[in-house]
């Protein structure tokens, strides 16, 4: 993180210096114009969504709406009456956090295992791990559904959370990180001190892998937050559904009530928007370093 910051700083300083070299030409103005235009295009649908959610259905269907109205609470109440959307939010948070925790822990564990232990068949097993990345997630979905049925796990969170333990990308990423940032000498030192192998992992390795854990955590969190197909077919109870499934059900239930639908999507976007604007620097640098290593 530190290095990253320094680099940006120097880039910035460089920038200051160079500005004098390049005059504010037409080209530069054009570039800014394009950047701002794209930024506007990125944000406009969200703006439109927020504005529209504050109007009545008849206004929505008749006029172009540019300014906020007063109907938000009415639309909101109609929505809340049938869809427990905040419940969906909490469900999504629960699923995402537990899955991400499992994913991170076990990815680090297996990545470390592949990186630092020279066991028989290691390379073949690692190839197997990589091979599973090629399998599209939908391939087994029907068998998954029926199998979970015979395990009596339908309508529970287990089939959604537990598979996070086997995340091939996570292992691959963690192995690479462990290869480069966990020196063997430290492990030897730990062993001499009489730590158990599991103890070494928890006390020495895991802290060293923390930056990688944070990066992988962002990916895992976003991926799980957006998960849709599995919860949709596994869960029946409305009170268990995560947010994406609730949004889909809002769409099917409020087919004529656009006001309520808009409120639904506003609720699904705004908290993420706030969360993102607070820690966007972390997320973006995480994604950037993750992309580089992955």
């Amino acid at each position: 993180m530190e290095i990253q910051g320094n680099k940006q700083l120097t880039l910035h300083m460089n920038g200051r210096r160079k500005i004098f070299k390049f005059k504010p030409t037409l080209g530069k103005i054009l570039i800014y114009f394009i950047l701002i235009l794209i930024a506007v295009i990125c944000l406009l649908p969200f703006y439109s969504m927020m504005i529209t959610s504050t109007h009545t259905n008849s206004e929505i269907s008749r006029k172009l709406l540019l300014t906020p109205g007063t109907e938000f609470m009415n639309n909101y109440e109609r929505l809340i009456h049938t869809v427990p959307i905040w419940r969906g939010f909490i469900n999504s948070l629960f699923i995402t956090i537990t899955s991400t925790a499992l994913n991170l822990y076990f990815s680090a564990l297996a990545g470390y295992g592949f990186s630092k232990f020279d066991f028989k068949g290691r390379n073949i097993l690692f190839l197997c791990v990589l091979g599973t990345m090629m399998i599209p997630s939908q391939l087994g979905i029907i068998g998954f559904f029926k199998l979970m049925n015979s395990f009596h796990m339908l309508n529970t969170y287990w089939p959604i959370i537990l598979p996070s333990i086997s995340n091939a990308f996570g292992i691959f990423f963690m192995k690479q990180m462990a290869d480069s940032s966990v020196p063997k000498e430290i492990l030897e030192a730990g062993r001499i001190d009489g730590c158990s192998e599991v103890g070494i992992f928890h006390k020495l390795v895991l802290p060293m892998l923390m930056p990688a854990v944070a990066t992988l955590g962002i990916f895992s969190f976003i991926g799980k937050w957006n998960d849709f197909l599995t919860p949709m077919i596994i869960l029946f109870d409305n009170d268990l559904q995560p947010l994406p499934v609730m949004i889909a059900s809002v769409k099917s239930q409020f087919s004529t009530d656009f006001g309520a639908m808009y409120v639904g999507i506003v609720i699904s976007v705004i908290p993420i928007l706030i969360f993102f604007s607070i820690i966007s620097k972390k997320i973006i640098s995480g994604v950037t370093t993750g992309a580089l290593k992955g």
Partner: peptide, 22 residues
Amino acid sequence: VKVFPGDQYKTKLLTALQSGQN
């Protein structure tokens, strides 16, 4: 009374009937 609004109801019902659970 358990209300399952929306178009997922049919699938939910069939699954429950199939599994014989709940």
